[in-house]
Structures are given as structure tokens and as C-alpha cells.
Design a binder for these strands. Sequence first.
DNA 1: TCGTTTACTGCAACCGTTTGCGGAATTGTT
DNA 2: AACAATTCCGCAAACGGTTGCAGTAAACGA
Lengths: 325, 325
Amino acid sequence: MNNTTLKKISGLLGLSISTVSRALKNHPDISEKTKQRVTELADSLDYEPNANAIQLRTSKSNLFGLVVPSISNFFYHSFISAVEEESRKNGYALMILQSGDDPAIEILNLKLCRKSRISGLFACISNQTFNFDAYLKMKDLDIPVIFFDKVPELNNCNKICVADEASAAMAANTIILKNKKKVLAIFGNTNLSITKKRLSAFTKTMDGKIDLLVHHANSTTEAEAITLECLQQKPDTIFCMSDEILAGAMKAIQRAGLKIPDDIAVIAISNGFIPKLYFPEITYVETSGDELGRLAFSSMMACLDGSTFTQELTTVSVLVEGGSI
Amino acid sequence: MNNTTLKKISGLLGLSISTVSRALKNHPDISEKTKQRVTELADSLDYEPNANAIQLRTSKSNLFGLVVPSISNFFYHSFISAVEEESRKNGYALMILQSGDDPAIEILNLKLCRKSRISGLFACISNQTFNFDAYLKMKDLDIPVIFFDKVPELNNCNKICVADEASAAMAANTIILKNKKKVLAIFGNTNLSITKKRLSAFTKTMDGKIDLLVHHANSTTEAEAITLECLQQKPDTIFCMSDEILAGAMKAIQRAGLKIPDDIAVIAISNGFIPKLYFPEITYVETSGDELGRLAFSSMMACLDGSTFTQELTTVSVLVEGGSI
DNA sequence: TCGTTTACTGCAACCGTTTGCGGAATTGTT
DNA sequence: AACAATTCCGCAAACGGTTGCAGTAAACGA
């Protein structure tokens, strides 16, 4: 273990630690000559300031935390990638933790974040989270929290969401426009606000114009089973609220040997990866994780700049036509 | 900002900082009574030891770094998930950084790791990395490095790899066993060692027993085009070296309206996610990122326990039967 | 020649924790 | 009652930086 520290440099150069520190930060008090000597030696010794010492002294860390149910999820990839990229560009590191939709682990993860003295947190709550104390504690510690995607129903916090209502309405309108008659609509876990929003906007837009079968699925497998069963009622269209559900529905459709879009039409709200796996590609309303990520990051930076103003942002949604409806 | 520290607790209890510190760690010098008083107060105050201070004092961090070209890749998901899970269970946090296959960013990421004083590094090098100085520097600092998947051709370092040859051979044997006659085999970019290994093992196992069409695709779209074209030569089986390729091949098969496995059989080497998206599910040789991750983690722990013994491990591969062949 | 300014640099405290060592209070031994 | 052995606890230094303040030497003006 061969770390170069300020002390080492100062010893080698016959300067004090403080002078070396200041020289490295280009402080006006230090003469050009000294600065040059210091930086040269520091470079040749591969000096890396100890982030822990800095955080300890200044109580400013360059670490963000990100907690999410699972990084192996279609949608979160792109979100995380975007946040990670922005963080790096701005000199921050990102600590990524996953809860596996287990609230107990989620709490543990938040604890780890606090221990590591992160300076900001991106959080997507798990399906089962009803107690937000751990998040509120973050606020007590002045750690800004940006909720994304699955957000709690709390006031006074920063939320970045996809345009749930608009997306669902857009999908519904597309179905109406295509003159469909009988729709099977599969939504996710009823506890989630995302589900509630999409469901209400969807049904409201439909407004009884079309025969509507609404179901809820908590997983891909459930979605497959539901689809398979409902297929007997011969819907002409299936709407899927998410990628997980779409994957299940598609499997059922393939199993039943139905042809898209002739036998049945499909439309989904999605990130875009899964829909492009099939032929014909599935028509979907895009919810871009990438855009959401950048939005979340800039929101974080605003918080760190001292903005106490909490905001709820949504991204705009776009219809991407495949050939499935 | 309302952090509870040892000092605060000691002040409240009229004890010294050191006593509190020892009480919290169950040190034998401290009486049970005192221990109890201290832990109770600490609990009620939500005391979280400052990880930075600990690292500074003990020079032991609870942080691992993980650098990878992209987390948005089928295979790395499960690997990262596994490492992350194991890390958490063992009290470590994981800092995940992606390079986007850019060596310059890769170097920056490694620098960030050093600054953060990680105690170990998991690394998958980018396609373009030919200079390993930054990695060697890690070794100078006594930071163990576990290379995974794409590993450098260096001696004396820990490498964890997928069993490329064995997987390809297993797929080939399965095809032979099923008595297939004409196989379209699609591989990836010829520059990658992974492609070379899989290709040579596959063809060697086939050993002229079966009519073989070999093609290379650099992307999902290319794979689709190739498949579509080759379908005219009526192969009875398609082998896909990777998930990207499988996705393309499947799209072509759907476009052509072929039925699996009657019209055509499909087998792939995969992580398991994509194959399960279709019905029937695609039979594949599993290259488990999950297992690889756990292997990498235990290898890391061995290093931290002082093992200077470097090893090159490969995972065993398993055939997962869908219904596609 | 003698204050006074200016340009550099160093001292020392501090962030929160760990830990070797020494000291006080308590108990046990003759 | 005197002394040794235990228990229990606190002092202080250290980890690697940052930063307010003070000190020194050179340069300057009068």
C-alpha cells in the first residue's frame, strides 16, 4: 500500500501540508513557482486526494445513491445509464442498490446510503413499500431525494414520472381511432400510483365507447395466464400497461397461435425494447428512461444548489407505431 | 443536518467518546450496564457510524467498484445483480461505473475508484482496451481486481469467464442428438475472442456430421436479415451464439410465419431472459451471469482474506430445455 | 533608515472514528 | 489493614485532508 498523501508530498518538497493543499487547488496565496513544483511532483506520484478525508472535513461527498427494485428491469436500464452518465460527467459517483421489491432490504439499502454519507438519493420505491419513514429521515438529514417512476403519494417531495395519464390516454385514443370493439386491458399492481393513474386515464378516455375487460397482473406469468383465459372472450385488442405485462400477453398470444394484427391487435406502454423483439413490432407509447434519467439528474442538481422548491415533473410521451394495431 | 455522532452520544450520557465507541462494538472492557445504556440511546437516535471516518481511520472501506462497458446489456444484468446482492449481504456497497466501451472513460472510472478508496474492483474491460496500466496501478495499491467475462490477456490476475467452448459444444451436441440435418449457425463479431472460441468449438463438435451454414452478424438487425435470407435454403435448425442474435433470428422466423419447432428448430447460447419471451420457449445453453457473479464475489473475498493466489475460473454451462428443438 | 504594505507560507484546529495505554475504583487475598 | 488483581473507563494520537489566522521576509514609500 503505497498511497501518496499531502504529507508525503510536503515532506519531499520541504513545504507544509497546507501549502501543498493550496497549491493543488490553485489558491491565489501560493506563488506560481511553488504551484508548479507541487503539481509536477503530485502528477509524477499519481496523487489522488482521499475522498473520505475530504468528505469528513467538508461534509460534502461526491456520491449519489440510487435505490431501485431491480436493475434487471427493462425500463430502469436506460434510466440508470442516464443518471450514471450524467453523474460521472459532473464528478459524482453513483452507488446503485436494489431491493428486489423487499421493503426490508430497501430499508437496509437506505441505511447503507446514510452511512456512506451520500449527498443525494434517487429512489424508486418497491411494490410493497407503504412506510416512508426511512425516506423522511433522509430529508431530516438534508439529503435531497428524487423519486422516480414509482413514487410515493407524499406531498412536498420531488417526483419525476413518465406521463402516466397522457400515455394511457394516448393508447386509448389510438385504440378508438382504429375502430376497435372489444379491448382486454391488463394493468399492474393496484397499489401503485402508476397503475391507478394509467387505469383511470385509460378508462376515462374510453368512456364506455368500447367494450372493456380490465385485469391486473403482478408478473409476467400472471399476465400470460390472464391473457390466455380472456382470449376465450375474443377481444380484438389487448392493451398492456407495461413491458412485464406485454411479455406475458405476447407469450399467450403465441401459445394460442394468433396472428397479429389480424386475429388480435396489441398496444402497450413501454420503453421500446420488448416491443421491437417481435414481428410485427408492437405499437407502443414510449416512456423514455433515458429522458427521465436526465430530468432526474438536473432536478437533483437544482436541489443541491439550494432549491427547496419541490416539483413534480413528467416527460412527454410519443406513440411509436409498430404494426400490431 | 442533524447527524448523531459518538461525540453527541457521549455528551448526552456523560461518557467519553472512546467508551461509547467500545460499547457499541461490544468490547469486553465495557460493563453490560454501560453497553445497554449506550446502545439504547444510539438506537433511539438512529446512530449511523460515518463510513468515511471509519475508512479514514482503519483504511478499510466497505466499498467495491465495478466497471463494465454497459449495464444495459442482457448478460451483465444478472452478473451485476448477483455481485450487488452478495456485496450487500456481506456489508459492502457497490459502486457501478460504465465505460460505454470508451477506454478514456474507463480510465476515468478507475481513477474515481481509486479516489474513493475502494477495497476491491470487479472489471470487464471494454472492446477497445489494450493498455492495462490503470489496472496494474490498482495492484500496486493492493486493491484486488477480479476480471470477468471480457478479460485481458495478462498473466497473474484473477479471471472469471463463461465456459465458451463447453457451451458451444453442448449446443452442437444437442443439435446432433436431435438428429438435425441442416443448421444455420449465426455468430457475432469475428474480432471478439468470445466469437472465436464459440465458433471453433461449435464447428469442431459438428465435425462435418451435419450440413452447416455459418454466418456472422454484428447486430440484431443484421441477424434478422441474414436469417431471412438463409431461410430460403431451408435449414431445419438455427443456432444463435448470443441473445442479440437470437432476437434477430426470432424476428425473421416470425416474419416468415414459421412454426417452432415443427417448421424450424432454434437453439441458442443465452442468459435466459430472451428465450423465455417466446412460446414455445427457446432451448438454450445457459451462461449464467448470476453464477458468474457469485463466483467473482467469492474470489474477491478470498483475495481480501489475503490469498495472493491468482486463479482463472470458468463456470459450468447447463442446457435449459424450452420447446424449440 | 524606518515603518508599512504585499506576497508567501506555516500553525493548529477540526471532521468522526479507532485503539494503545495508563489510571481510578472495586474486589479479593493474606 | 495493606497490597495485588480485576474491572471499567478516559486521554490522546492518528487517519488525510481543509481553512482561518498569524507570522516572516522582501519590497516599497517617505
